[in-house]
Design a protein around this nucleic acid. Structure first.
Lengths: 101, 101
DNA sequence: AAATCTTATCGTAAATTTACGATAAACTAT
DNA sequence: ATAGTTTATCGTAAATTTACGATAAGATTT
């Protein structure tokens, strides 16, 4: 594959898009993001009440969204308050729109 | 989870977004889509030349993009000409922009 | 100190994904 | 007919994902 400096930068972009897209690639995670977007913030338990899956599975999906940096968790013992990571949310929006041109 | 008619429709949307996002969730597939977008159309062999992975793996990625209906293949023996599925490409664009609001 | 609450993590199983080489299928050219 | 070209599919292995129940960790309340 051709490897100009331009292409390498482009590759990095594509990797970032793929990383975001992968995180968005499960219905449950989209529901979580929509929920967070509506309610602004919520606790894990709020999602567990609303989703038809086990608590541990919800926690796992939250972890993936956190690792993709699309959400962030703030410790508020014994609860953890999750919110959308606005900075990266905007970045995702931008990067996707750009990708689709 | 609450299940009004509205929510069920919404769920379908989310499933469709997840389906598209999953297909976009690998750098190689993004490169393929970008390539197709630039060149309009191409043969499998063109991609194999350009990508640092085996022919069978390229074919597998093409299959996934085809199954997500983001591309389509037209037999042109013994080659197969791939193009972006414009209808669904537009749908993806729309659906993603809507999701990000 | 003990019980309770909330959520992450562990262990595990099943399914899916990613990658490869080898082979088959389908058509063209010699 | 034979050889060559192109690309899908098969078989397989390793890694990752998805889901669950059980348990641990961390803090509060009793």
């Amino acid at each position: 594959m051709s490897r100009t400096l331009k292409n390498i930068k482009h590759d990095d972009d594509l990797k970032q898009i793929a990383r975001f897209a992968k995180a968005l690639g499960h219905p449950t995670r989209l529901i979580i993001l929509k929920y967070l977007d509506n309610k602004n913030c919520c606790f894990t338990g709020d999602l567990v009440e609303v989703l038809p899956i086990a608590q541990s599975t919800v926690s796992q999906h939250l972890k993936e969204l956190k690792e993709a940096e699309l959400i962030q968790g703030e410790v508020n013992p014994p609860k953890i308050k999750y919110c959308i990571n606005q900075k990266n949310w905007e970045k995702a929006k931008k990067i996707f729109c750009e990708f689709f041109k």
